[in-house]
């Protein structure tokens, strides 16, 4: 029952995104231009940036893209339509569908981002499988955390500012671990070095996921 609901809602998200392509194109252009601004500001040719700077800069770009991209997940549709959903589907179905959709969106944006980023600023990554695994986990983590926060922020007035300040502290522990793991992947360290960090990342993801699942119905009711 819940599974079918989620499937239908994810399909709805895709159709909606495809019909309002300007939002998706906007996000893609946002990633491209941010990467390009960073590239021009540093004013260095490829592979000259220090790996620590390279790594931190990339994740900061992805963080801001994620906050901007996910902030719209409850603002895209008109308010009246939520009443319709409210009568039709369960709250859990909505949050799970939105989280899965946002995770896929984040993954797409992160992959596009890393391609352009490596094109202009070089690419020091040594251990690609680990780097990609980290990217997938981070897409899931960003989407689970930010989807609930965007729901909270959409209820308040100055929502763009609020979205940022509410999500920074909540997402920071996750971001620090992600940066640490991807640094390990860049240096090509032995996989066992990243084991405990990966485990903590998965654990935080699970905590945030279950909390969103439990808390969202209360948000949905108001």
């Amino acid at each position: 029952m819940l599974f079918q609901e989620v499937l239908a809602l994810i399909k709805k998200e895709f159709v909606l995104e495809w019909r309002q392509r300007y939002a998706l194109n906007g996000m893609i252009l946002y990633v491209f231009s941010t990467v390009f601004i960073c590239y021009l500001s540093f004013n260095v040719k490829g592979a000259q940036l220090h790996p620590i700077t390279w790594n931190a800069l990339f994740w900061i770009i992805i963080l801001f893209t994620a906050i901007n991209g996910i902030a719209k997940s409850f603002n895209q549709e008109r308010y009246g339509r939520f009443y319709y959903y409210y009568a039709l589907v369960s709250a859990q179905g909505i949050i799970v569908a939105k989280m899965i959709y946002n995770a896929l969106l984040m993954l797409l944006l992160a992959i596009l981002g890393i391609s352009v980023y490596s094109l202009v600023l070089g690419n020091p990554v040594a251990d690609w499988p680990l780097y990609l695994l980290n990217m997938i986990l981070s897409a899931i983590g960003f989407s689970t955390t930010l989807t609930l926060v965007s729901g909270i922020a959409s209820k308040a007035s100055n929502s763009p500012t609020l979205m940022a300040i509410l999500s920074f502290p909540v997402i920071l522990p996750m971001l620090l671990i992600i940066i640490a793991i991807s640094k390990n992947a860049i240096d090509g360290l032995d996989r066992s070095v990243s084991d405990s960090s990966l485990l903590v990342l998965v654990a935080i993801n699970l905590i945030v996921l279950s909390l969103s699942y439990i808390l969202f119905p209360y948000l949905w009711r108001s």
Partner: peptide, 17 residues
């Protein structure tokens, strides 16, 4: 209600931090 939701969420992410 909304601040209660954020409070619980924030406290839970504070623990790993």
């Amino acid at each position: 209600r909304i601040s209660a939701i954020y409070n619980i969420f924030a406290f839970a992410t504070l623990i790993p931090l």
